[in-house]
Amino acid sequence: MIAFHFLITSIGLVLIGLYGVITLRHPIKILMSIELILNAANINLVAFSTENLIGQGFASLVIAISAAEVCVGLAIVYNLYRLKKDIDVMEVNALKW
């Protein structure tokens, strides 16, 4: 099977994810975009694990990580909502110098 469409898919997902991260203002949507990027990585890992299974094993670890990430991320979002009653990431700029 030729790798072309895997590559196209993963690149497309990364770009879409990136686009989402930099343009969207809803934290849950940003989380979704991040999940897309992670998925794109997984596609590559799985598709190119031809010699052995390391790639697939790694992808399974990535899935676990992303589950954890979503878990914490959503907790943060919920907390944010509870504190500010407004979940616009533009308002959450406590990191500003």
Binding site: F4, F6, G57
Partner: peptide
């Protein structure tokens, strides 16, 4: 890039063995 993809079967038992040895 015109590589072949896939090839090895990612069965549960293979992955399990991998996870408990190398990884």
């Amino acid at each position: 890039i015109t590589r072949e993809v896939g090839g090895t079967k990612g069965l549960t038992q293979n992955i399990g063995r991998l996870l408990f040895s190398d990884l």
